[in-house]
């Protein structure tokens, strides 16, 4: 298993390299540059700025320099937020996004799985229909609708939660954004779990367990649930990568200083280094969580072996 993890981490290097290379050249192909949008920038100043950041160099040389810096852990300066390096931006924002994302994911897995199991055990009965209806609603109502509703009800009307802001990470400030992030995920996990559990409960070995007179608890939790976990695990990996790297909608609406907004902002502003930083961070998270999924697979299912 250790050898497998090592091998996987090793193969991540060429993957990252390909992603970095593609992203580097793709963003350069897009028209415009980091200093095009600032009004009143005289050609001399602009040329100066570009020279300072080496943007006048041939593309391959810029690429070469970027790779070198990246290998030293240096993501370079941000062009549009000149007081910060990209590294500093992530050091500040990433922990915030991770906190929100991890809380939302935990909630989603706990509540979503529970709802899914309840629905599966009551297939085609009232409880099942209630879960399906809620889940469908939860996954169809967009985040930018849920978030303002939460702000309106809990913030303005009942004054239970602050309307927005990070508040130095006070718990009460996290509730709104975490709920907004978690609700659609709860819906998805509940539906996945329901389907997976129904299939698992139909399998032959569950029939065996029933025929042996085992208790419902043992049948559901020990035998059915474990087998039903695999699809949830596969979903949770990429979902975790997406949630932990922040959401622009939630962070914008609740005024949270996370990293989710960088992705879009940086791309729009042609902030090359920040775009690259975001790509690298998301790539690393995705690779990491896919690896974790594969390891969890082996933990859940003894037939999965990696040696």
């Amino acid at each position: 298993m250790l050898l497998y993890v090592f091998r996987r981490l090793l193969t991540a290097i060429p993957t990252l390299f390909v992603i970095v290379t593609l992203a580097f050249f793709l963003i350069r192909v897009a028209p415009g540059g980091p200093f095009n949008q600032e009004r009143g920038l005289s050609p001399e100043v602009k040329a100066n700025l570009e020279a300072q950041f080496g943007l006048g160099d041939p593309l391959w040389l810029q690429y070469w320099h970027y790779l070198q810096n990246l290998l030293h852990g240096n993501f370079g300066p941000s062009y549009n937020l000149p007081d910060f390096t990209v590294g500093e931006l992530f050091a500040k924002g990433l922990p915030i996004s991770i906190q929100l994302g991890a809380s939302a994911l935990t909630l989603a897995l706990l509540i979503g799985s529970t709802l899914g199991i309840i629905a599966a055990l009551n297939q085609n009965k009232a409880a099942d229909y209630a879960v399906i209806a809620t889940a469908t609603a939860g996954s169809t109502i967009p985040t930018f609708v849920i978030a303002p509703i939460i702000q309106l009800l809990f913030g303005l009307t009942w004054k239970l939660l602050p309307i927005g802001g990070w508040g130095d990470g006070a718990l009460i400030n996290k509730i709104g954004p975490v709920l907004t992030l978690a609700l659609p995920q709860i819906a998805i996990v509940a539906r996945l779990m329901r389907g997976s559990m129904i299939e698992s409960l139909r399998s032959h070995h569950i029939r065996t367990a029933r025929a042996l007179g085992l208790s419902d608890w043992s049948i559901v939790v020990k035998h059915a649930l474990r087998g039903a976990l695999l699809p949830i695990v596969s979903y949770a990996g990429p979902a975790a990568a997406a949630l932990l790297t922040g959401s622009i909608i939630v962070e914008t609406i609740f005024a949270i200083p996370g990293v989710g907004r960088y992705f879009v902002d940086a791309a729009l502003n042609r902030d090359y280094t920040l775009v690259m930083g975001t790509v690298v961070v998301i790539a690393i998270f995705t690779i990491l969580f896919n690896l974790i999924v594969d390891i969890l697979y082996a933990v859940v299912d003894p037939r999965v072996r990696y040696d």
């Binding site: 399998s203 032959h204 070995h205 029939r207 065996t208 367990a209 029933r210 025929a211 042996l212 007179g213 085992l214 208790s215 035998h223 474990r226 087998g227 859940v300 299912d301 003894p302 037939r303």
Partner: peptide
Amino acid sequence: NDVRGRKITMIFQEPMTSLDPL
């Protein structure tokens, strides 16, 4: 369940899938 698996038991056609694989 005090009868099933104790007084009356059953084996099935599908030996490959009738045991819990996990």
